[in-house]
Each structure stands twice: as structure tokens, then as C-alpha cells.
Design a protein around this nucleic acid. Structure first.
Length: 432
RNA sequence: GCCCGGGUGGUGUAGCGGCCUAUCAUUGAGCCCUGUCGAGGCUCGGACUCGGGUUCAAAUCCCGACCUGGGCGCCA
């Protein structure tokens, strides 16, 4: 099949100025409106919609009859003449000479692509290929792409190097979450929960500013609107800096991403009121957080982690993106640098709705790190591959991990995290 | 892991012991209509998750299974 002969254009690349030009558009039959003497065929492609108009008296009778029979969502190529027309949605319409049906769709669709009738998330995920044909879902994933591109641009401008660390790992991990076991030849291995240990090892290599955007796997059997078993993490690690510098980098990144997304025209389809957050974000200490919570009648024992309702209450009080700093070491991982009296140089970045990121100044002393691993009840032996990197020249360093899906869902006011993943993996879903 | 909901045409819903031969919208099949843009009008088609129980009578009540939404915990 010679696709080139069609001189294909995207629907929105055609304008009224192309009046008289012969073009073709390829896409899906979005809607058909039969008014008797005139027939409108709306063809949808990734860019938008093109109105194909068939006045009964001006087109071939066979063509007119053919169009009537094409089921919605069939794939067609329409070749015809552009006509400037004020009454048409984009100011132009196409009077077709030929319509090729490349793939006829089964007539009863798994969900409505026009937005007239809603569909539940489960139904949409089962037929994700068709859900992606709807305006809202399409724009979410274009924004996801824009976000990832923007993050890379941001890091690139600042000289960070993009790295790729293994996703198949041995048992030794930072702890805190359940792992997916896999069979690795004659041994047991796991899917990585985060690139934490590897990006830190890189700090001993001279690669002093690195980032990775990659999947992470958590075997938690949770069933909420903000958890996934396979998620995407943006991880950053910088040497010769403290937690303060990486916090600044993080808030600048968030504001930069927001500023790009705000400019994306398709944002209007999502009905989101998006404002670029002012930096620096507010910073409160853990102590201040439990103080604020106590004022709202929510008692948190010092040293206790903040639960879901505490996060929500704090979110209401703060009303914008904010950092919680100076966490008790007891509820932070072994690699967080202790400051004073059980407090670590660790931070969480919070959106009023949920946690987006956490990070810290890292322990770079071999002896201290070893002690901390042991005091968390982990065996230092199995961390040898990690600890080794701290014995031959490890600079001070700091970093964070940011959940891409959480950033997207909070930014786009999406209710369920599954909505920002093409093919989400959760407690029950393994297909499609 | 604990706790609470829900499974009705393709999709989204109403009904919650007899008025159900099951509502409405959309979709599908077809007819009418020359400017639609959620087009309009008319006709037709299409469903009570499965298994057991209670009852004169079950979509409706009970039990189990399966599927599913959410909250908590844990976690990013």
C-alpha cells in the first residue's frame, strides 16, 4: 500500500487559506451526521477533527452511499478539496473525491469516544486503545510526554547526566517496601524498588550530577487512588551539595514543569485551573507540622510518621506545595544524614493532596553508613556492593526521588493515579 | 493485611419483594430531513454476574463464589 500518494495532512494543519487545495486526511470516523441532502463526516486524527462535507447533489452517489455505511471509529483516508466555509467548525471543510476505508470498525463500541456518555475507569482501562481516542485521555498523555521532555530539558540545561541503573537487583535494597521476587537463572532476584543505592554509587565515580527517569516496582497490596505497583520515578543525585541545594533544584523543576504545561493549549480540555507555583516553596519542619496538626485536633506522637489524614489536614492548612524538613531519623532510611538529636537532613515535598517527593542529604561516611544499616536491623554484608563505593573516596551528596504519576495527577487534578499511566499495574490488573 | 460499598442492554444509569412484559440517555439497525457541530423527528433491536437458599412471589432479601469502587495501614 502506498501511503505517500495521499499527501496526508493533519486536520489542524489545514486552514481556510488552503481553499481550493487538494489534500487528504487520515484518521478515525468520529461522528456521522446525516441530514438527508447533506452528510457530515467528522474525521479525527491526533491533531483534532476535520469536517468532511458531502452535499448530495455535488458528490458521486456511490460515495454518498458508501459514507453512510462506514461504521464509527473505522479508519479512513479522505481525499478531496478544501473549501473555506464559515459554517464549518475549523473554518474549512473538505469536499471528498474519494474515501478509502482502511479498517472497518465493529459497530458496537466498547465505549463512547465523543464524550456524550461516560465510562468507568475499569471499562476505559480494558479498552485503553479506544479510551486514548477521547480528548481528555489523549491530552493527559501528551502532557505526560511534555512533562518528561521538560524534565530532561531542565536537567540538560544544568549539566546533569542521565543514567540507567539495573531494574533487576539482589535482595539488598533500602527497605521499607515489599519487593517483587523474580527468578534469575538459579538465583532469586527482585525488581528494583528505586535506583537509590545505584545513583549513590555513581557519586563515587566522578559523575557528580546524575538523574534517572525509570520504572520502580513496589509489591504493596494497597488499593488506593494514589498507588501503583509499577510507577515512574525521577531520581536525582548531586555531589558536593547539601539537602538545601537539591530542594532548590526540586522546586525550580516543579515550577518549570508547571510553566510549560500551563502553555499547552490542550490543557483547556482537562478543565484544570493551573497556576505556576511561586518559588521558593514554604518550608515547615516536622516539629512544626505536628504542632499545626495538634492545633487541628490531630495528635501525632513525635517520631511517628504522618498518616493519610494528617497529610490531608496539613494540605488544607498549607494550601499549596510545601516542604516538610528535619524529620526524625527513625522514620527515614539509613542513608539520610543525621543532623542533631535524632533529626535527619531529610525532606518531603508535599502537594496539598499527597506526597510528591522525598529526599535528603546522604551519609557519605563509610563507618556511619555501616552503623546505620546495622541499627536498622539490616545485614551490612549484603550491602557490600553499595558500601564498597564509600571506602575509596565518596564526596558528600544529596538527592531525591519524585513520582512522575503523582506529579501529573496532582498537577492535572486527576482523581485516580491509574488515569495518568497508559497501562497501569495495580493489585488486580496485569492486562492489557 | 483490615474495613465499607457496588455488579441491571455495548456504554452510563433508574428500579431495591408483587405495579418489571425492567426506566432513561447514548450506541446499533432502519426511515424522514440541504448546514450539522451533544443535530432533530419516527420505528425497531438489545440487560437483571454466577451458584445455592428464603418466599405463594426475587433484579429486589440471605449465603457463597467471581468481578469491581473506595477508605485505612504500608508506601512514592
Amino acid at each position: 500500500m502506498n501511503m505517500q500518494r495521499w499527501n496526508r495532512k493533519y486536520a489542524t494543519d489545514i486552514t481556510a487559506d488552503d481553499d481550493g487545495e487538494r489534500v487528504s486526511v487520515a484518521g478515525w470516523v468520529h461522528e456521522k451526521r446525516d441530514l438527508g441532502g447533506v452528510f457530515f463526516l467528522i474525521v479525527r486524527d491526533i491533531s483534532g477533527f476535520a469536517q468532511i462535507t458531502l452535499p448530495k447533489k455535488k458528490v458521486e452517489p456511490e460515495l454518498f452511499e458508501q459514507v453512510k455505511r462506514v461504521p464509527r471509529e473505522s479508519v479512513v483516508v479522505v481525499e478531496g478539496e478544501v473549501k473555506s466555509e464559515k459554517k464549518a467548525p475549523n473554518g474549512y471543510e473538505i469536499i471528498p473525491q474519494q474515501i478509502d476505508v482502511l479498517s472497518e470498525a465493529s459497530p458496537v463500541l466498547p465505549l463512547d469516544t465523543t464524550g456524550k456518555v461516560g465510562a468507568e475507569l475499569d471499562t476505559r482501562l480494558d479498552a485503553r486503545f479506544m479510551d486514548l481516542r477521547t480528548e481528555r485521555t489523549k491530552h493527559i498523555f501528551i502532557i505526560r510526554s511534555l512533562t518528561l521532555r521538560t524534565i530532561r530539558e531542565f536537567f540538560d540545561e544544568r549539566g546533569l547526566i542521565e543514567i540507567n541503573t539495573p531494574k533487576i537487583v539482589s535482595a539488598a535494597t533500602e527497605g521499607g517496601t515489599a519487593l517483587f521476587p523474580i527468578s534469575y537463572f538459579e538465583r532469586e532476584a527482585f525488581l528494583n524498588q528505586s535506583p537509590q543505592l545505584y545513583k549513590q554509587i555513581l557519586m563515587a565515580s566522578g559523575f557528580d550530577r546524575v538523574y534517572e527517569i525509570a520504572p520502580i516496582f513496589r509489591a504493596e497490596e494497597h488499593d488506593t487512588t494514589r498507588h501503583l505497583n509499577e510507577a515512574t520515578s525521577v531520581d536525582v543525585e548531586l555531589a558536593f551539595v547539601s539537602d538545601k541545594e537539591v530542594m532548590a533544584l526540586l522546586e525550580e523543576l516543579i515550577a518549570f514543569v508547571y510553566s510549560r504545561v500551563v502553555d499547552y493549549p490542550g490543557l483547556a480540555k482537562l478543565n484544570v485551573k493551573l497556576e505556576v507555583p511561586a518559588i521558593p516553596f514554604r518550608r515547615i519542619t516536622y516539629d512544626e507540622a505536628i504542632e499545626l496538626l495538634s492545633g487541628e485536633g490531630e495528635q501525632i506522637e513525635w517520631g511517628e510518621d504522618l498518616g493519610t489524614s494528617a497529610e490531608r489536614t496539613l494540605g488544607k492548612i498549607m494550601g499549596e506545595l510545601y516542604f516538610i524538613t528535619d524529620w526524625p531519623c527513625a522514620i527515614k532510611p539509613f542513608y539520610a544524614q543525621p543532623a542533631a538529636e535524632g533529626i535527619c537532613n531529610a525532606f518531603d515535598l508535599m502537594h496539598p493532596r499527597l506526597e510528591l517527593s522525598s529526599g535528603s542529604q546522604r551519609v557519605h561516611s563509610y563507618e556511619l553508613l555501616k552503623r546505620q544499616i546495622e541499627s536498622k536491623g539490616l545485614g551490612a554484608d549484603s550491602f557490600e556492593f553499595y558500601l564498597d563505593a564509600f571506602r575509596y573516596g565518596m564526596p558528600p551528596h544529596a538527592g531525591w526521588g519524585l513520582g512522575v504519576e503523582r506529579l501529573l495527577m496532582s498537577m492535572l487534578e486527576v482523581e485516580n493515579i491509574r488515569d495518568v499511566v497508559l497501562f497501569p499495574r495495580d493489585r488486580r490488573r496485569l492486562t492489557p
